[in-house]
């Protein structure tokens, strides 16, 4: 099975405290730590396990800049066979549809049986997978937490729905699936693994390599646009307990007693 996994480089929510910049309209990006989108690691792991069982290959692709190469290498250290970086100044300002349009062009250059994305990324939209599928006229299923291959034309997938229930579907190949966390346990990648793939050539493709009209991507093609970042005024928020640990614990115990917690 030939599997393409789309991956995104994102600011790591576990490693950063997000602050606005001086002008108050963007994140202060100077010291942000980036990593692979959490969901994408599950998608890559699933692809590797499928190929281990059935043969074929796993290709990871991202739309990004020079710095995005590191996440492709990380996923190749996990076991993906190939990496492709799609990068061009013309991609700047792309909205979700722009990103999907770029990915679609790359997908059409190959012949993949299965395209995997993460269920969502840092922006929390969960949009790219469904868009790519609709653009290719492939069937789509989101939030997939189980994949069973039936034959070379059909797979059975479970979608995680509300309450943790699982919606089972039969879906024809080729198709696009967005992968939910928990479907597997992504393998650990150490420094040594990354070193092993550090000299592998990763092709970089531009808009013209992909045969893309610059007006269909980037800010020219974008119907949606982010205006600014801000911190909302959420009213009072929590009453913050301060002081020494003993003082904090004494205050907390009073409150817990009053509210039925003790």
């Amino acid at each position: 099975m030939e599997i393409l996994v789309c991956v995104k480089r994102v600011p790591d929510t576990a490693e950063n405290e997000f602050e606005l910049n001086g002008a108050g309209n963007d994140l202060d990006r100077d010291d942000l730590v980036y990593s692979v989108n959490e969901w994408d690691n599950y998608a890559v792991e699933e692809a590797i396990q499928m190929v281990d069982k059935m043969g074929g290959s796993v290709t990871v692709v991202t739309v990004g800049d020079d710095e995005s190469e590191e996440i492709l290498r990380r996923e190749m250290a996990m076991g993906a066979n190939n990496g492709v970086l799609l990068s061009d100044d013309a991609f700047e300002g792309s909205d979700g549809k722009g990103i999907a349009t770029i990915l679609k062009a790359e997908i059409e250059k190959g012949s993949y049986d299965l395209i995997l994305t993460g269920a969502q990324a840092d922006e929390g939209a969960g949009q790219v997978g469904g868009m790519v599928a609709a653009m290719l006229d492939y069937p789509y299923a989101s939030l997939v937490n189980k994949i069973d291959v039936m034959d070379d034309k059909k797979i059975k997938v479970g979608r995680e729905i509300e309450g943790g229930n699982q919606e089972m579907n039969e879906i024809s190949l080729p198709c696009v699936l967005s992968i939910q966390t928990g479907i597997n346990e992504p393998r650990y990648v150490g420094i040594r693994g990354i070193r092993k793939v550090s000299s592998v050539e990763i092709p970089v493709k531009s808009a013209s390599d992909l045969g893309l009209d610059a007006a269909s991507v980037g800010s020219a093609g974008a119907k949606t646009r982010r205006v600014d970042y801000f911190v909302p005024d959420m009213g009072e928020g929590a009453e913050m307990l301060e002081g020494s640990t003993e003082e904090i614990i004494a205050k907390l115990i009073e409150k817990l007693k009053a509210k039925g917690g003790l």
Binding site: D95, G96, K97, A100, A119, Q120, G124, A125, G126, Q127, V128, G129, G130, M131, A133, A134, M135, Y140, A141, S142, L143, R159, E160, I161, E162, S178, K223, T224
Partner: peptide
């Protein structure tokens, strides 16, 4: 924006050639 909304909406915006905004 539920598991159904996430499933249908992005592709629908492509098919309707309409703008998309999530959540």
């Amino acid at each position: 924006h539920t598991t159904f909304g996430m499933d249908i909406a992005p592709g629908l915006s492509v098919k309707m050639d309409a703008a998309y905004a999530a959540d």
